[in-house]
Nucleic acid binder design. Structure first.
Lengths: 208, 208
DNA sequence: ACCAAAACTAAACAACTGTTTAATTCAAAC
DNA sequence: GTTTGAATTAAACAGTTGTTTAGTTTTGGT
């Protein structure tokens, strides 16, 4: 995965990612970014033009290869329900190991301030939905999945469950006794992922 | 529902709610709050002490009666699955008509900056979980609900689905052709709520 | 060795931040 | 009508914000 950014730019982007994720875009000053990245303040404007465009660059830098991963999954020879399970695993794994940027996306592009920005993000979402649609429709044709589910609402259930869990990290760390970062990550990879898979499977198959 | 705030304070709180929800806490200046609330800048410090404590007051002002609503639901004579459905409806309705504050809670109290603040919020979540637990355990005793669900992960599925939908409002407005605010709200009250109820019901009842 | 472009720096810029001050207006109590 | 405390004000405070400037250093090609 090549990118159009230089090493120095990437260094800045990754520091910005950490800080934006922790303190939010407005809560992070370019001076702090510069200090942490050990560069001069002026370099942010020099390389990216502005703080706002630094954020845009960051999003492009981080989301550019998800589409590819999804496409290869679609090509695999698997039963629809297994594809769904793999898709959920892919989503959770990916978001969980790129928490920073997804937190930022979640935060910054839902507040009205920056809503119109970044058509690319909206296109990404549309593409993801198309992939999910094609899997579910395949399952419906095969008579495995029920036909009265609202497909566009499945993504909110998958991602929303994860996000809501992660957004309340401290709360669940206490509740579930996940004392170390490793335990927390492990819980996501096993229990939370399984819960989501179980939920979606039940939703797609169960007839009342 | 009486509150400990004067009319003037409430006036400021409600303006702050709108602005914090739109632009975030850091993205909103006390000057803008003051201008919109048609008061002098100094009044914010005068009434609340600081901007940070204005936020705390806002949260107390908005979340203080949820616990009561949940408790009365628990007392009702209903089948467990109907209680669950009612609980989901209550949650969605409540959050949807108090979008501002829940958006703020969602945003501000997940970034590390203000994490330790507001024990009250954490207590609220614990109480909510207890209510849900008691309903599900009743259903399990009656043999209606399966026993291998992870109860604390159900709230993330319910609330997460709603939040993720709402956080991507613009996206779904375009996708589902919800041109007016009324159509959007209606979609939440009917389709989205039904989707969540259907999902949780399937999860609780379906055996693979 | 020379040159031009790129990389980098410290300093200054004007605008904005949350909070405090000191003075003034207002309202009810006596 | 005077007093007293609360409500309100404009102005000032000291600090931070993102960006730009005007230099300096570094780099790589000739």
């Amino acid at each position: 995965m090549q990118s159009n950014f230089t090493d120095k730019q990437i260094q800045i982007l990754e520091v910005a990612e950490t800080l934006f994720a922790e303190k939010g875009f407005d809560g992070t000053s370019v001076r702090v970014i510069a200090k942490m990245a050990k560069i001069n303040i002026a370099m942010v404007s020099y390389y990216f033009g502005s703080k706002e465009r630094l954020l845009e660059s960051l999003i492009i830098y981080r989301t550019s290869d998800l589409k590819y991963q999804l496409d290869t999954l679609l090509q695999e020879e698997l039963e629809p329900i297994d594809k769904i399970n793999k898709l959920i695993e892919l989503y959770i794994n990916r978001i969980n190991s790129n928490r920073g940027i997804y937190r930022i996306l979640h935060f910054e592009f839902t507040s009205k301030k920056r809503e119109q920005n970044l058509l690319a993000f909206s296109e990404l979402k549309k593409g993801n939905l198309k992939s999910l649609e094609s899997i579910i429709e395949e399952g419906q044709r095969k008579g495995i999945f029920r036909k009265d589910v609202i497909i566009p609402l499945i993504t909110p259930t998958i991602l929303g469950t994860f996000f809501h869990f992660h957004m309340n990290k401290t709360f669940f760390e206490n509740l579930l006794n996940l004392k170390t970062e490793e335990l927390y990550n492990n819980y996501i990879k096993t229990n939370l992922t399984k819960h989501i898979q179980q939920t979606i499977k039940a939703l797609l198959i169960y007839e009342s």
